[in-house]
């Protein structure tokens, strides 16, 4: 595969990444159906390179009224560092929680229901994010480790949030897909934000992937 500039991606590399994402998310949905008894439809993923500092603006543009959303955030690292953001609109959140409760039949000793709802969202987020990120890593022969996820509000997606994770002027790879629960009016957005610190390792992984077909 031709790669000239070592600090950015060629069109072909982006196309390959997109295809790998496509495959990863396809496998993730099929496997998720087996793990959680729910059919999850993942839309064709899109990929963009953006400045880290414009993350919030980007997400806001993608999903519209961000304030109406709740976000599950989970950090992960393999050859590169990244953070997954799973955004549900408030109505979807409640339905999703109800659905998972039915499925698990878990008992609760509620002090504040809001807090438990958050914990529930965290578990759901952990499964969805884990499936998508792990499949992607598997195809790129990477191994990822996850940090416990947490719920954040849209306000927390501030500059400080970005600065704590990425160099704000640096660029990040933004992967995005919309997931939908089949048979229900229920959808959310999944963003994977990867640092480009290790662009070389990613390029190497892509080359490796290509080699299988050369």
């Amino acid at each position: 595969m031709e790669t000239n500039d070592e600090n950015t991606f060629s069109e072909m590399e982006i196309d390959t990444l997109q295809e790998i994402m496509n495959i990863a998310f396809g496998q993730a949905s099929a496997d998720l159906a087996e793990v959680i008894n729910v059919f999850i439809v993942l839309s064709i993923p899109s990929l963009k390179l953006k400045k880290a500092v414009s993350l919030k603006e980007f997400i806001n543009n993608e999903i519209g009224n961000l304030d109406n959303f709740k976000i599950v955030e989970q950090g992960y690292w393999g050859k590169s560092r990244g953070v997954a953001l799973l955004a549900f609109p408030h109505e979807a959140e409640l339905e999703l929680i109800a659905m998972f409760r039915e499925d698990t039949g878990m008992g609760f000793e509620a002090e504040s229901s809001d807090e438990l709802d958050n914990e529930m969202l965290i578990e759901i987020g952990n499964i969805l994010i884990g499936a998508c990120v792990s499949k992607m890593a598997e195809l790129l022969k990477d191994m990822v480790t996850f940090v416990p996820p947490r719920v954040i509000s849209p306000e927390q997606l501030s500059e400080a949030f970005v600065e704590n994770r990425f160099e704000s002027e640096s660029r990040v790879i933004l992967l995005k897909t919309i997931f939908q629960i089949e048979g229900r009016e229920l959808s959310g957005h999944l963003f994977l934000v990867n640092s480009l610190d290790s662009i070389h390792t990613l390029k190497d992984a892509l080359r490796e992937f290509w080699k299988q077909y050369e």
């Binding site: 496509n22 495959i23 998310f25 396809g26 496998q27 949905s29 099929a30 159906a33 059919f39």
Partner: peptide
């Protein structure tokens, strides 16, 4: 040849 391998 597809990435979408759900039974359906």
């Amino acid at each position: 040849l597809t990435a979408d391998i759900q039974t359906k």
